[in-house]
Nucleic acid binder design. Structure first.
Lengths: 163, 163
DNA sequence: TTTTTTGTTCAAAACTTATTGAACTAATTG
DNA sequence: CAATTAGTTCAATAAGTTTTGAACAAAAAA
């Protein structure tokens, strides 16, 4: 396997780790991203990543659960293959934003628990409104993306040439 | 200490854990949020949370580093006190969005590593543009918040009464 | 200067999470 | 049906992280 690809796979592992998932999740996802095949077999993943069957089994399960990859089975072939789910963009972001929604609720709750209307209480009110509001705003931005993406992508590629 | 507050402190711990920080970080922050004092001493935090000095020392350091709390010292008092930093809203969100910026770069990089212009490559282009673009959009949304927050908060409180 | 207070540091312990590997199940082939 | 292949499960282990606690440093008080 191409050295560049292996490097990329490790990078991907580290990135996913930073996003709160495991390194192995990032590696498997990274491998499927850069593979030159449409789908890759369980055994091939295990071999390239040098991991155990148990590890690949658990990791692919997680990735399927998150929705980042999907299993593929072929007639006349008992192996399981995997491929990248071409996610609707914004879904991952939306799910991350839900964390902020919960953060917002916790902040609102903090306010109820306080015995004093001090400056922190004022800030808590503002913050809980903010994090609630921002969720809706981001939904709108994502809608805008779907409406205008062709234009946005064209523009982006255009400007890239002049960098 | 109020039972409601202790419950809140634990909730806060769990939430911060989910955001990728430690439980103790969440607890200290939670305690400062709901405390009825403007600032709280090191020893008081240690006592309420039933943790060691070493633990409080490391945790407060982290929280200061993130910018969520700040140390306060008083003349004629050798103790260190801590209080919530009344963060400009949106800063936390912005720093989280930087992760998406990096995600975007990683996706763009994956595209360079591939030897084939397949459907995943197309998706990678779209995704890397998306995650770059969304960062700017969110900056705009945050600016909008600062311009219109008074109105937004008033509206939110108004609707809350009718829930 | 000696003592006390306040907080820091860091090695060890406790805990948590990820990974392996061997035994197992399910499905297919011959 | 027996043999083979593919993948799962789970207990044991490895790896990593957090917390403690004892020794230490800094600063103020006596």
């Amino acid at each position: 396997m191409d050295k560049k690809k292996l490097t990329f796979i490790e990078e991907s592992g580290l990135m996913f780790e930073q996003l709160g998932m495991t390194r192995m999740v990032g590696r498997v996802f990274g491998y499927l991203l850069v593979s030159d095949q449409d789908e890759v077999s369980f055994e091939q993943i295990r071999e390239v990543l040098g991991a155990s069957k148990g590890s690949i089994s658990g990791t692919t399960r997680q990735l399927i659960q998150i929705g980042l990859i999907e299993p593929v089975s072929l007639p006349g072939d008992r192996k399981t293959y995997f491929r990248i789910t071409e996610l609707e963009l914004g879904k991952l972001l939306k799910s991350r934003m839900e964390l902020f929604g919960r953060f917002s609720k916790t902040l609102a709750n903090a306010r109820n628990v306080k015995n004093r209307e001090d400056s922190v209480a004022g800030w808590l009110l503002e913050a809980s409104v903010f994090y609630g509001w921002i969720g809706d705003q981001i939904d709108e931005v994502i809608d805008k993306w779907h409406r205008e993406k062709d234009q946005i992508i064209k523009t982006k590629i255009g400007t890239k040439k002049n960098e």
